[in-house]
Design a protein around this nucleic acid. Sequence first.
DNA 1: GTATACATTATTGGATACAATACTTTTCCG
DNA 2: CGGAAAAGTATTGTATCCAATAATGTATAC
Lengths: 233, 233
Amino acid sequence: MSHRLSKTAAPTRSDAVYFGLRRAIIEQALLPGDKLTEDVIGERFGVSRTIVRSVLARLNAEGLVDLQPNKGAAIAQPSLAEAYDIFEARMCLERQVLARLAEKVTDQDLQLLEQHVGLEAKAGHQDSAASIRLAGEFHILLAELSGNKVLARYVDEVVSRCSLILAMYSRPHSADCSINEHHQIIDALRTRDAARAINAMDHHLQAVTERALLSSNSDKQRDIRSILDRYAS
Amino acid sequence: MSHRLSKTAAPTRSDAVYFGLRRAIIEQALLPGDKLTEDVIGERFGVSRTIVRSVLARLNAEGLVDLQPNKGAAIAQPSLAEAYDIFEARMCLERQVLARLAEKVTDQDLQLLEQHVGLEAKAGHQDSAASIRLAGEFHILLAELSGNKVLARYVDEVVSRCSLILAMYSRPHSADCSINEHHQIIDALRTRDAARAINAMDHHLQAVTERALLSSNSDKQRDIRSILDRYAS
DNA sequence: GTATACATTATTGGATACAATACTTTTCCG
DNA sequence: CGGAAAAGTATTGTATCCAATAATGTATAC
């Protein structure tokens, strides 16, 4: 999926914490506003604060956590204005991805995409957490297949941040509609029809955006210890 | 200009090192391939390795430095393939910026842009370092005026990385042509003509891209100590 | 003279310790 | 009681220390 490690670099312990936290955020196990105390995370993942700090800085750079000096880290709470900015950037980036893919997509690529949507269908209603994650990863996979590493990284980022936005402003995720729309995008790519693919993507993202209706989350302090344990494997 | 600190957050010592190094890279005082030893940087900036490490990680995330485990950091040396990816993403992002700006640009914005090109003209041929930096900052300013923080951050990143690309593959920077082309973009925005602005930008970036002809830099180890001193203020 | 094995040095990775700051609770006075 | 000041606690910021790894230099065998 995303963030595959390069061939030479062995996965470091820092990566384990990074991917663990990231997944917890994207699957909405950790919610916007949750406080991320360095000691707590370090303890759960079995590493020192040094590692945790670097991971938090990394997540902060990606916009997933908010980092205030002397106050610590918390899962980011994107405002509606930020949400709009993110959606605009995402639209712009994903269009470019599709334009590029329509030119160079291979049968193998298409097969991979189909396979991924298969996974989404499988997760379906049962595993809500995986369902949310897979829906995002479909877009990340598209970006990676485009072959442009820079676009891929940016798409990865905006898609992740969209998880946050949905967690803040949207009702529970429904898997079915995404799958349908993802199929339409694949179909358009199969015929190398960039315009149709982009159109399908526009409608898809529009649908996602519209699902975002203001609904403030309770902001009482949650204990994230038990949650972290599930992601520290 | 870019990376303005939020109102509440005081500039930390980490920021000082970050902006110092960043400027040294963008002004091409530090060149692609230069080794960045933690001790050396820490000594010059008067901070411990802890700070330096976090800064190097940040610059790595932005693609300005290469960071290999157990081997240390060096100014990134983007390959031609990466250069192409960066230019493609940059084109895509800056088009969106102009599309947005053409709708909402104010007279005050235009004045600010004119003023900036004035600075570029002033730096002119005399201060080559500042000239390079200012040419990039024009684009960053455009992105900031668009009002979309996400786009602004991404533009900032790709523009910075373009400095690296030019350092690797291009002949010395000529200020004049940039200024001329920047004026054309402002003119198009003044008439709210998005299409013409985008066209001007396309030609501008095309010109920059074409100036990038392969020319390997000598890769003997340089002593960066004296260079760092100039940026540690 | 070249190449390989070994010793030495330089540099990074990470944990810990201490200082600085923010947060919480208690105490004291009106 | 209510609120301000103060003491205590929790958490972050940074320097330093030690271990692990890579880079370098040296000697020895062929």
